[in-house]
Amino acid sequence: MKPKFLILFSLLILLILNILFSISIGPVRIPFDSVTSTIFYYFMGDPYNRIYMLIIFYIRMPRVFLAVLIGAVLAISGLITQTIFRNPLGDPYLTGIASGAALGASIGFLISPFVVEPLAFAFAMLAVFITFIISRVDGEFSPEIMILAGIAVSFLFSALASYLIYLKEVNLRGVLFWLLGGLYGANWNDVFYLTIASLILFPLILYFVPEFDLMLMGDEQAKSMGVDTKRVKLITLLSSSIVTSFAVSMVGIIGFIGLVSPHIGRKIIGESHRFLLPASILIGANLLLASDTIARSNPGGEIPVGIITSFVGAPLLIYLLIRRRFFDRGN
């Protein structure tokens, strides 16, 4: 047991260092001692460099904390999808969230830029509900049907979004930039609302952690061991979908974090959800934060973060897959 706590503790330390590092770097070079002195003077009420203060407190900090939160949200949703569907390809967008949000955003740009976020959220949730309704078979949610229903709903919503874009009635630039995704406009309000949503919904998920290990053995097996599989699926999938939809409506569709974080977690800490869940959260937060810091610090202008998440995440997963194989042979 002890090494697993040690791993979690190391991931937490890594995240804290990552946050400090990310706050002190960016396209504008601020020396590390100026970062610390600006923060210190700001809280002490002493005179400080106003530009540095704005950059640190109003641009970098909200963006850093939003990256941490969204990385955590995507990782937890990815893990739940993989566990409940018993499918290693599970990612947070499996229930149609991405296409739903894209359709909502397209309709939003048709009306006004200010309704883009609420509509993206509403349509992401609509896609989730349709997927849930289709996959209800004999009062139970069938994972196989839910995967297919999610794909069908995704294609339907994407087609509708594409049709709107095709009609050219929509502000094309807006939709395309939105679809690329990114944490550009992060502010303290975003951080605040996403924190509230996570505080409400994460406990609902954490409550079922013991059941997750049993669910991995299959629905029948889990039921025979006293798990109310329907209730677990409904509550955890729904809570993770709500908070993911919320995150997506803020920053667009950021790929790969939700898929890769739980896998990295499994490789370094094992299948037991008691450790895997916090590990995945910490890995997702670290990965998205590191990726976004690279994306925004490029001196030639920002790079869409999705490109970086794949560049950072994919080699990491490949390395772990290969290392595991050598390790197994050694045994």
Binding site: G26, P27, V28, I51, I55, I59, G300, G301, E302
Partner: peptide, 19 residues
Amino acid sequence: VAANLTGPWPIINNETVLQ
């Protein structure tokens, strides 16, 4: 102010704008 960024249509970070 964006003349030193790469590509014809770069994204400029808001902290660069502040500076």
